[in-house]
Design a protein around this nucleic acid. Sequence first.
DNA 1: GTGGTCTAGACCACC
DNA 2: GTGGTCTAGACCACC
Lengths: 140, 140, 140, 140
Amino acid sequence: MKKEIKILHFTVEAKSAVPVYEQVKQGVKLAVISGYLEQGDQVMSIRELAARLKIHPNTIAKVYYQLEVEGFIFSKPGTGYFVKVDHRKIQKEKQELFKKVTRDYVSKAMDLGYSLADMIAELQSMDSENMAGKTKKREK
Amino acid sequence: MKKEIKILHFTVEAKSAVPVYEQVKQGVKLAVISGYLEQGDQVMSIRELAARLKIHPNTIAKVYYQLEVEGFIFSKPGTGYFVKVDHRKIQKEKQELFKKVTRDYVSKAMDLGYSLADMIAELQSMDSENMAGKTKKREK
Amino acid sequence: MKKEIKILHFTVEAKSAVPVYEQVKQGVKLAVISGYLEQGDQVMSIRELAARLKIHPNTIAKVYYQLEVEGFIFSKPGTGYFVKVDHRKIQKEKQELFKKVTRDYVSKAMDLGYSLADMIAELQSMDSENMAGKTKKREK
Amino acid sequence: MKKEIKILHFTVEAKSAVPVYEQVKQGVKLAVISGYLEQGDQVMSIRELAARLKIHPNTIAKVYYQLEVEGFIFSKPGTGYFVKVDHRKIQKEKQELFKKVTRDYVSKAMDLGYSLADMIAELQSMDSENMAGKTKKREK
DNA sequence: GTGGTCTAGACCACC
DNA sequence: GTGGTCTAGACCACC
């Protein structure tokens, strides 16, 4: 069975105030943290990802370099970049990201005048809906 | 007692793909929906808001015009724009926005591998923390 | 008294197998480790150092960025880069460098057939010479 | 017993500012000075050394010619080059080289803030370490 | 003036 | 094909 290189699906907003390289970095990082990219998986090549996102290879190279420094991937020069899974680090990043998106959500919902109880109720109602149909969606 | 004009605090991202006028519109709309701006409140003048956001007054004028058509504000020519609160409409908008931000949150958290139960637990933990100190923060 | 920016004096060998950016990195690092550059000193600007070394500013930017990551300098965007002295780190780097140059020296001298005793004797003879004239050269 | 031709192990840095032929010359000279190549030893053939270093045979020929002029080797036409050991000359070269590498070492170490006493101490510590295990490593 | 980001593209070594 | 280095130069924000 041939070794497939998984495609990264995020997009990049060229005109955003948050730098392109930062967006790409978050995108790749999320792919690793979420488990989409697994230990040893080859990451899309610099040129390939650059072509897909329509940005310059140098920008991807910068991102990959930083992600290597941060320990999410490693390079085999002449071959490509590969995923390095450190479960401790990943778990920590995952929890931080979860707390962040939760805080962001709570902040927005409270601006609209909803309480934590409202949010919990809303989530519970979604839970019930899931119960009905697809039940255990998150098993994969 | 002098009638204060409430300051609008959102910012605008000049380089974003979503048009500046749309960002301004959402910002003002949210101020109304969230209840920050109340029935009869005078909205910041076109010139004043344009100066704050560093964008052209024409853009603000366009936004105010559309918000008037949509029934969120009304103009008193020669005086300014004022908030018109239609509780039905506001309530409906508010709920839609709430459902949207909730769906977005659930989507992100699930990508990270968290279940609805995890999210509910996280929100409940935040609830407990609030209980401790500041209790009824959202009264204002 | 005007705040002087100290000049960095090392040179770079364009045609070397060791990358230019690595040579520059070592040069700046040595200036910090040796104490030539002190806590809070402004480092030569990217453009200025690039001009002096006749290499592209991007290369210096890369070096400064890496040295910042490694904790030897920090940037104040719009102002410049400044030395950050962490005595622990510096001391450690200094000792490592000292051990390295010593190993290199021993290796070369042994290739020539000299023993550690020979080297020690040679250094002691230099010590005596110093005694004669300039005595306490390393006080500064 | 077949007469072995000793292999020269130095490498050459193509991109260096110091010319390739100079690097080769130093490499061969060091092999003689250090005693690796002994009186009467046949030196690697021009073609063989050129192949190993991946440089043009003409460059090696130039080096051998100069080394012959300087009296380190001599040619037997149709046979090859052979080592000529002039102990006086070798001894002198050796001492000069030793003094040079020692000066270089002292210079670097002093830049780092170490004294001659520190260097001597470091060398003595290395001496002790050798004492422990492998004792007389440099006999060969 | 300063650093920060990004594109464009060359050339290299290694495969 | 792959990543790594380097130059050239544009444009930005901040001072």
